[in-house]
């Protein structure tokens, strides 16, 4: 699943390690989510969105959005 994580992180001048620390996960996890290798669970997705003060839809791109 695509996300705007990298852009949002860059806007705040955060490294992957910074974001990982805030989220309480490993840097590898942040990297895997950013690169689309791993889709986070709903609780983690909510946590990420909350950290950026956004809704989930503003952070993650719905892969089936065009089908709706």
């Amino acid at each position: 699943m695509k996300s705007r994580l990298k852009v949002l992180r860059a806007e705040r001048d955060w490294s992957q390690a910074d974001l990982a620390e805030v989220l309480g996960v490993s840097r590898q996890s942040v990297n895997a989510i950013e690169t689309g290798k791993y889709d986070p669970s709903l609780p983690l997705a909510f946590h990420i969105a909350r950290v950026f003060g956004l809704s989930i839809e503003e952070v993650f791109v719905d892969p089936n959005a065009d089908d709706a």
Partner: peptide
């Protein structure tokens, strides 16, 4: 393991 990606 709390890190879900590492656990997976």
């Amino acid at each position: 393991e709390k890190d879900e990606y590492i656990r997976m």
